[in-house]
Simulated assay, not measured.
Amino acid sequence: MRDALLAQSGQATIDLDRLRATSRISDVLGPATLAYLDAGDFAAVHGAADVEKLPAAHRDLRSFLASAGDADRDESGLEEITSAAFVVRDGQDVIAAAGYRSWPDSVAHLSVLTAAGHRGRGLARLAASAAIAEALEDGMLPQWRARPEPSRRVARALGFRELGTQVSIRLTT
């Protein structure tokens, strides 16, 4: 793997197809943008909708995740949060949620998802803002990892700065 990556060093991007052809790769996640938030740059959002704090294992969050498509659910990472979930509801239904997974060195890896029919209304920013506020209160460094541009826009609107990219590679055994 090291040799295959070094062969592409100096290039602006890694050719994942070429890498797959020369390596024993079973899965690739990314590339994704990594963004971080300094407390002084946080653009907190408060909206007309209420944000409710639920345990990560709450049945309403689990129902929301079950209703999302596999791709959205997997991209969000909400099934892996270690924090509480911060949710926005439409009636009794959760339509947006955010939380974070505690990573080493006090990093709070954010996870956010809005139901497909409710996107574009600022609900991701609202739910994420509550999760970020808690992470900052706990002395953590919020991290946002995103591939889709809409997710990257939400992060930038909240004050995150894109500082790098990440590719995760799983090798066959």
Rank of each mutant, 00 (worst) to 15 (best):
M1C: 06
L5W: 05
L6I: 02
A7C: 04
S9L: 13
S9Q: 14
T13W: 08
D15Q: 07
L16A: 03
L16P: 04
L16Q: 02
D17W: 02
D17I: 01
R18G: 07
R18T: 04
A21G: 08
T22E: 12
V28C: 00
L29Q: 12
L29W: 12
G30V: 05
P31R: 04
A32T: 10
A32C: 11
L34I: 15
Y36P: 00
A39K: 15
D41P: 03
A43P: 02
A44P: 12
G47M: 12
G47N: 14
A49I: 09
D50S: 15
E52M: 13
P55H: 13
A56Y: 09
A56G: 12
A56M: 11
A57P: 02
A57W: 11
A57Q: 14
H58F: 12
H58S: 15
D60M: 13
R62Q: 15
R62I: 11
F64N: 05
F64C: 06
A68G: 09
G69C: 06
G69V: 05
D72E: 13
G77E: 04
E79Y: 01
E80L: 12
I81A: 10
S83L: 08
S83I: 07
A84C: 11
A85H: 11
A85K: 09
F86E: 03
V87L: 10
V88Q: 09
R89Q: 11
G91I: 06
G91P: 07
D93T: 06
V94R: 03
I95T: 00
I95G: 00
I95R: 00
A98W: 02
Y100W: 15
S102P: 07
W103E: 12
V107S: 07
V107K: 10
A108Q: 05
H109V: 04
H109A: 09
H109S: 15
L110G: 00
V112C: 01
V112R: 03
L113K: 02
A116C: 01
G117D: 10
R119K: 09
R119F: 05
G120E: 04
G120R: 03
G120S: 06
L123Q: 03
L123E: 00
A124C: 06
A124F: 01
A127H: 08
A128H: 02
A128K: 01
A128Y: 01
S129L: 02
S129H: 08
A130R: 15
I132W: 11
A133I: 09
E134M: 13
A135Y: 11
G139F: 14
M140G: 10
M140E: 15
R145G: 12
R145Q: 14
R145S: 12
A146Y: 08
A146W: 03
A146H: 06
R147W: 05
P148I: 01
R152L: 05
R153L: 01
A155S: 04
R156S: 07
R156H: 10
L158F: 07
F160C: 07
R161N: 13
L163M: 11
G164H: 11
I169K: 07
I169W: 03
R170D: 13
L171G: 05
T173I: 09
T173V: 13
